[in-house]
């Protein structure tokens, strides 16, 4: 049986090889498509910290994805129109600098995750799924009906934001940026899983009482995990907005949250690379099935159903076997 780390290494290599091939073969769209998969994977890697490690099934992660997207949209929109974001109590100017936008996206979505987490983590199980959904819906309706930043029309950013010494308008440099960030996020995710914090978090998922008896408060553990999770998904939102040069309330929709969960399950729950494989598979299916039939969603539904019913452990489970699967 192949080891899981070998599968993971192969995935990372393949993810880099495809755009490189596309660069040589002059197929820029393949690079764009791979970038999309990488960014969606990043969002799901974020969710996986809460879901896979902490057992927190959040159906509202689109809230953080959207906040990250709007952080980019609002800053770049103000930079593009040369107007300040706000003047009182202190002046904030718009910006076209990616690193600044990323920091803003991470901070705002972490704050939102802290707030939502503080309230939502009082509940468990189905109630948790539903309260996170409720918070996601609040953001969705707010974004649609608030006219200042385009409402349902969203915000168009005419040029992709800048990164020092790279031409982000060309597909390949932007891909490389996203790829590196994904790799870093996977590293963070792996370090967390191996840390004492991650072990305590996993223990709290499996047996809450036992964790309490050794004097650890599971609520705090989960809150911390939820905040990190939201921050990573928020960063993915900022990148996604930059990929499309566009933000809109659909980034907040509950279907978006549902798709993140789909990625994780397609790839394999509790696997480090589960979200990456799942997102890639989803993007490929979406792209390929969409050309086969107008009714392609039927086939997508059927494939998802078959995976849930008969291929537990997802794709990585199928490749690497079950020996290291979490509980």
């Amino acid at each position: 049986m192949i080891r899981e780390w070998q599968v993971n290494a192969a995935i990372m290599a393949l993810l880099l090889a495809v755009p490189l091939w596309a660069l040589v073969a002059d197929e820029p769209f393949t690079i764009t498509l791979t970038t999309r998969a990488v960014i969606l994977a990043l969002a799901a890697v974020g969710l996986n910290i809460a879901l896979g490690l902490g057992g927190l099934v959040s159906l509202g992660h689109a809230a953080f994805f959207g906040i990250g997207g709007y952080a980019m949209g609002i800053l770049a929109h103000h930079a593009q129109t040369y107007t300040p974001v706000m003047e009182w109590p202190f002046l904030i100017e718009g910006t076209k600098s990616m690193p600044l936008i990323w920091v803003t996206a991470i901070v705002t979505s972490a704050l939102a995750a802290l707030l939502i987490g503080l309230l939502s983590l009082r509940t468990t199980g189905v109630y948790f799924i539903m309260i996170t959904l409720a918070f996601g819906q609040m953001f969705f309706y707010f974004a649609i009906s608030w006219p200042a930043y385009g409402g349902e029309d969203g915000l168009s950013i005419y040029l992709r934001n800048d990164f020092p010494r790279l031409n982000t308008l060309r597909p390949m440099p932007f891909f490389v940026i996203c790829y590196v960030i994904l790799a870093l996020a996977l590293l963070v995710s792996w370090r967390i899983a191996k840390s004492s914090f991650g072990l305590a978090l996993a223990a709290a998922r499996q047996n809450e009482v036992r964790v309490r008896t050794v004097g650890i408060d599971p609520y705090r553990l989960r809150l911390f995990a939820f905040v990190i999770s939201g921050a990573i998904t928020g960063l993915a939102g900022a990148l996604f907005a930059d990929l499309n040069r566009f933000v809109s309330p659909t980034m907040f929709s509950w279907q978006m949250s549902g798709e993140f969960i789909v990625f994780i399950i397609l790839g394999g729950v509790g696997r480090l690379f589960g979200p990456v494989v799942g997102a890639c598979l989803f993007v490929i299916l979406e792209h390929w099935l969409g050309g086969v039939s107008d009714y392609w969603l039927i086939f997508l539904g059927a494939i998802l159903l078959l995976v849930v019913l008969f291929a537990r452990g997802g794709l990585i489970g199928g490749l690497a076997g079950r020996e290291v699967a979490h509980d």
């Binding site: 769209f29 393949t30 999309r36 029309d153 969203g154 499309n244 659909t250």
Partner: peptide, 29 residues
């Protein structure tokens, strides 16, 4: 009816298919 899919398709048609004319979108957003 998803803006991000529409952008992706437009990128594909412009970058990969080299179209001269785009058309067809129904919704303002």
């Amino acid at each position: 009816r998803k803006p991000d899919i529409a952008v992706q398709l437009a990128d594909k048609m412009i970058q990969a298919e080299d179209v001269d004319v785009l058309t067809g979108i129904i919704w303002s957003n």
